[in-house]
Amino acid sequence: MKKLALALLVSTALIVPGSAMAANVNVSVNLKNYGAGGTYLAVYVVDSAGNYKQTLWVAGSRSRYWGHLSGWARGISGTNDRVDGLTGPSLGGGRTLNVSANIADSMLDAGYYVVVDSAIENWGQYPFDAAAPLSNGGTGSGKGFVNSVTVQY
């Protein structure tokens, strides 16, 4: 019991200072309604020059196909970022992915973008499929598999 209390204390201590400087951002990615399923998506943040900053979510569980999300893959391959806990299953056409992520306050309303890369087996890949400004209510429409992306916090 003591151990549990101690663990809780430590973990809360680790989280609380973090949350003081970060906001909880909701990103919603809506896919176009096409027949195919198994859409892989990478949702990530880039700066105004298009440089990779942070991964928010990767949809599609087989890491060997992640290379097809080439904009994101190219970006993250130059960093030490890990995607543990930020992955989930791939999506069918017409579905919506809702991502909730912690993003540093300093990046909000500061010219950053939330970008989505998409890829489907056989159908091809679409890096920078859609992008929305990282600000409350920011939206963007997709050019590939993605219909729209919206940012809220």
Binding site: K32, I120, N122, W123, G124, Y126, K143, G144, F145
Partner: peptide, 22 residues
């Protein structure tokens, strides 16, 4: 056009993004 694929049976399929999606 995004990609072209030659099927084993010989047909060529082109994948592209139109106004309403792939």
């Amino acid at each position: 056009v995004q990609r072209i694929v030659r099927k084993p049976s010989g047909e060529i399929i082109a994948y592209s993004f139109g106004a309403d999606g792939p």
